[in-house]
Amino acid sequence: MKYPIIAAGVLVAGMAHAQSEQPTLTVYTYESFVSDWGPGPVIEENFEAICACDLRLVGVGDGAELLGRLRLEGPRTDADVVLGLDTNLIARAEGTGLFAPHGIEAPEFDMPVDWDNPTFLPYDWGYFAFVYDSDVVFDPPESFGELIDSDLSVVIQDPRSSTPGLGLLMWVKAAYGDDAPEIWEGLAPRVLTVTQGWSEAYGLFTEGEADMALSYTTSPAYHLIAEDDPSYAAAVFEEGHYMQVEVAGRIAASDQPELAQEFLRFMLTDGFQGVIPTTNWMYPAVTPEGGLPEGFETLADPDTALLFSAQEAAELRDAALDEWLNALSR
């Protein structure tokens, strides 16, 4: 049985050699980025049109699994650039020592928070929010307190296995600090169930199994723009909304450092940023020249943006998880 594997390996290796006149830039990112319906294919086309190179996008699970994969590979990694970590992962990513300073003069970011990290550059961002169907929920809650007092059912993601799940943990912690355990105890009866990832939770929600799902304020834009369905909305909470900022950085051991920097520069131009809103369904870090697509102006715009620094997020993480487990395991 070993022969097919060896044969396949030899065959593919041969093919790879045949096309290696151009330099290859390998970018590790998360699964949904490289999918045929994600930003990957268009961005690959746009960058290859200007770089005289072969851009190879490798999709690995989600942000956290991406970091795990990088740690498994260590300095021998094939990656030149890693794209798709968020602020909850930055501290651990820096701790690996695998990343080099981006060394790029960044443009002005269109984000509600300042950014001055020397290693990682943001490429998009969004607010976590509970999304509902306005044909089903007529009186959406306007705070965690109102959600606790309502009879609505919500489906959330497990922070141990999901990025948004961890985001909600940070949201409650940022809004309520030491009172977070009481909020979780109040929320527990409202939580219909906890899923492994975002897809399962959102699937349960769109099937009508739950009234609300933890997602992003930008989620309704998909239904409005791609499905022409204006009935979905995100509940705006008066405590403010925790942000997810997605970032990219370059690998120190890369054999293509210039190309990697060229990619990071390209990442903040319209050829990349213009693709983000209607493929990744997030806000671009630098608003493209033509502005945001039509429909984005209808989205909920929270007054307060909440975000821990990378250091704070790393320090709070384990304790916040214990509080969550204690409240929801009963």
Binding site: S32, D36, G38, G40, E200, S219
Partner: peptide, 19 residues
Amino acid sequence: QDAATLPMQLYRLMGAYRM
């Protein structure tokens, strides 16, 4: 990127809101 199996594509569709 180019070796997705059918279950993977199913998850990718879900991940792209295409329920």
